[in-house]
C-alpha cells in the first residue's frame, strides 16, 4: 500500500517535471517544478530520509523557487514571451536532444539493471545526519560555507548594475 505511494509519487514527479520543462509560460513551469520537487520530497520520506525531505521542501521548493519567482516578476515577460517561446520550441528541435537523452537513459538503465538491493526501511534520523555532517564531513561543511559566500558575493556583483540601473544610477 505504502509502496504504491512511492510509485504514485514517482509518476507525479516525472509527469510534473516533463510538464515543467515543456511549458511556454515560465510561471506555470515553475509551479510544475515545485510540484516535482514536492513529490521527490515524498519519495525521500518514503525511502527513509525525513531530514532530506524536510530540507527539500524548505530550501528547494521554498527558498530557491521563490528566487525564480522574484526574477520572473522582475523580468515581467508577459504574453510576447510566450509567443516567442512557441517559435523556439519547434518539434524539429526536439529530435537530436531526444535521441541523446534517450541514449544516455538507456545506458544508465542498462548499468543499473540487475541491482537487487532495497532500501533498509529504517529512517536515518536527523541527529545521525548532524553528527556525520559535523564529524567526518566538517571540512566539506567549511567548503560549502565558502561556496555560499562566493555565491553571495558573485550574485551581488552580477546583479548590482541591474539594480543600480533600476535606481537611476549610471554605473558603466
Amino acid at each position: 500500500m505504502i509502496l504504491g505511494l512511492f510509485y504514485v509519487a514517482a509518476a507525479v514527479a516525472l509527469l510534473s517535471t516533463a510538464m515543467a520543462l515543456s511549458r511556454t509560460n515560465a510561471a506555470h513551469a515553475l509551479i510544475y517544478l515545485i510540484m516535482s520537487l514536492l513529490s521527490v520530497a515524498v519519495i525521500f520520506f518514503i525511502i527513509g530520509a525525513p531530514f532530506a525531505a524536510a530540507l527539500e521542501i524548505v530550501i528547494y521548493a521554498g527558498a530557491i523557487m521563490v528566487l525564480f519567482v522574484f526574477v520572473i516578476m522582475m523580468l515581467n515577460l508577459g504574453e510576447t514571451g510566450q509567443i516567442r517561446e512557441r517559435e523556439w520550441l519547434k518539434p524539429r528541435s526536439w529530435i537530436l536532444p531526444g535521441i541523446f537523452a534517450a541514449a544516455l537513459l538507456a545506458e544508465l538503465l542498462i548499468l543499473e539493471n540487475g541491482l537487487s538491493g532495497t532500501t533498509t526501511g529504517v529512517a536515518v534520523e536527523p541527529k545521525a545526519v548532524g553528527l556525520t555532517l559535523f564529524g567526518p564531513y566538517v571540512l566539506a561543511v567549511e567548503l560549502a560555507s565558502m561556496l555560499l559566500l562566493a555565491g553571495l558575493v558573485g550574485a551581488y556583483h552580477v546583479g548590482r548594475s541591474f539594480l543600480a540601473r533600476d535606481r537611476g544610477v549610471k554605473h558603466q
Partner: peptide, 12 residues
C-alpha cells in the same frame, strides 16, 4: 516508514 523496502533499482 519502518519496514518499507523500496527496490533500489526503481529509485535509481
Amino acid at each position: 516508514m519502518d519496514g518499507l523496502q523500496v527496490p533500489l533499482e526503481h529509485v535509481l
